[in-house]
Design a binder for these strands. Structure first.
Lengths: 335, 335
DNA sequence: CACCCCATTGATATCGTTGTCAAAGAACAT
DNA sequence: ATGTTCTTTGACAACGATATCAATGGGGTG
């Protein structure tokens, strides 16, 4: 017993097509007619039938979120942002996990998009850093928007964050607290964010006249375990740094665990900083000094620019860089 | 240029309707015909058009996951399980956050189901514990399956876990380690799991001849902060327990934080146990003794029984109780 | 006034399925 | 052989929207 266009057209005494014009905001509808139709729509509580729309218009009104293996809280925030952006737009979200290492990745995703008639993709790291993958999407005319792109192509749709500046600022903050021996744990090498954060760190120590010590710079992959292992490694060194900046909070937590197992106290014996402000940052003690990105807002914006493009409103909603916020907590001690 | 039923029907030299019969597994199709059609389907790579199917059949092929505010890692596991169960079934998942305290909850959800023509709901705590809400769904003939129901109605579809037994076992394990003074932090009062876990704890100490001490039994709500506050509270007591069992890991982590801030060492000065085996359980040090539920499997099963009902295979896939597993880690010390 | 143009509107076909119903043929009983 | 029932099949309508294209009418121009 759902209300259909036909019911509305009868109520407003116009043709079915005219109602369709109004609800799709098409041009060339007299103002009076439009008003009349909208009144009927509201009165009857009409909602267009998705299936019929998509059958006829060949659009699915579905966006897909592509991800490979990020941490769960990041994924949850991204999802939540996209859902909010989709609300009342008529678009829906499906979520698709994939394996960035698979050599079938490109064909799998193209097949996925075609099978489900996905209108657009939202791409997260590390897929967002794979140039050949993005090129494949373009070759198949698949629309997409990128969260955290490695290069900010003005042609493409993306949302980015100022990771370099944030890492620079955080490192400077550590230095301001009197530290000179500062270790660094790199993130997953395939994520461009890893390099931006690392460069921010490098430039900050350099500009403060601190020499880099590669004994204290370890490769991680954003996982708790990689942080733990890096910690074990560093604590075997002859000289131990007074502070360590890990490229994300999970790894910082890993370092904290390895420090505590060695009998070291944070921040008395070692200061620590992370990145992301994930839940774990304040669920351990001492709570982590870190950088908070507006992940939810970024994801929402990524969805919005994609939808704006579909609806022909690309002028109004554009790619954008978001600012991160420094959060200083107990894990950082003044020397 | 997608392949349609028409193409298949030409290739197999049968009518469109017969192809439809085959792909929907309807009765009364000759074996030979069926084989012929399936061969053509495979040869042409035919996939039915979802929009057309759902337009005509009035089904959306969409399930919705209803949740209010659980922790992110639980939600991620649930989602992941459902996605896996949906794969290759033709069903899709949409996720709907809601507010269990809202007095518009019931009408909102009914509206949501009707607007989106959702075929079935998967209901998580604490919504799964609201009898009147579930009744409303039944009154509106909305199909649903419950994760962690408060009462196991054999008529309804649900997946449950043996929280009572697990809490009993975990408490017994703590006692076996020599503890007699054991505190308990209750979970969110609206979650039936909270009561099951609490009862398991109560019965275990009782059966081991230990008297309950209400100074050490605090109300929490599953959040990190509520655990932290409960810890602060308990550590103000004249006498402090030698072990605390928190109804979930977040609260256990909160207690650990409050203990460490008081200068107490875990497990030297205080043993701790949690519940759920969430990521935080092994990202803090010492790692938490806890109970692991097969959340992903449970969620997958919840989706499966719902889909089985739609496909008329209810006999094969039924409601089920899942067993949890005790995980003993460093946070528990022998006295 | 005749003409054309453009804005507005509607009749009808169409998207790719499933539902209805009737027809054809096989199988069985009389 | 005839009638009856059951299995198998197909022709055609229908789901609820959008697309195409033609019709209508008001306004401007010469």
């Amino acid at each position: 017993m759902a209300v259909t266009i036909k019911d509305v057209s009868k109520d407003a005494v116009v043709s079915i097509k005219t109602v369709s014009r109004v609800i799709n905001n098409e041009a060339n509808v007299a103002e009076a007619t439009k008003k009349k139709v909208l009144a009927s729509v509201k009165k009857l509580g009409f909602k267009p039938n998705k299936s019929a729309q998509s059958l006829r218009s060949k659009k699915s009104y579905m966006l897909a979120l592509l991800y490979d293996n990020p941490n769960k809280s990041y994924l949850a925030d991204v999802q939540s942002g996209i859902f909010n952006a989709c609300k009342n737009t008529g678009y829906n979200l499906v979520i698709q996990e994939c394996d960035y290492k698979s050599n079938k990745l490109k064909t799998d995703i193209i097949k996925f998009v075609e099978d489900f008639k996905i209108d657009g993709l939202i791409v997260t790291p590390p897929l967002s850093d794979m140039e050949d993958f993005l090129k494949e999407l373009e070759d198949h005319q698949v629309d997409y928007s990128i969260i955290a792109p490695s290069t900010m192509n003005p042609e493409s749709l993306y949302v980015s964050s100022n990771d370099y500046e944030a890492a620079y600022a955080l490192t400077s903050e550590i230095i301001k607290h009197g530290h000179k021996d500062i270790g660094f744990i790199k993130g997953h090498p395939k994520h461009s964010a890893s390099h931006m954060r690392f460069n921010g760190y490098l430039d900050a120590i350099k500009n403060h006249g601190i020499k880099r010590n590669d004994q204290w710079i370890k490769q991680g992959n954003f996982s708790f375990k990689s942080g733990f292992d890096a910690g074990v490694d560093i604590f075997h060194s002859a000289k131990i740094p007074t502070a360590i900046f890990a490229s994300n909070d999970s790894m910082a937590a890993g370092i904290m665990k390895s420090a505590q197992m060695k009998g070291m106290q944070v921040p008395q014996d070692l200061s620590l900083a992370g990145f992301d402000d994930s839940p774990i940052a304040h669920q351990i003690w001492p709570a982590l000094t870190t950088v908070k990105q507006p992940v939810e807002k970024m994801a929402a914006h990524a969805a919005k620019i994609l939808i704006a493009r579909f609806d022909g409103l690309a002028e109004k909603t554009k790619s954008k860089e978001f600012k991160s916020e420094l959060i200083v907590r107990e894990s950082l001690k003044s020397l």
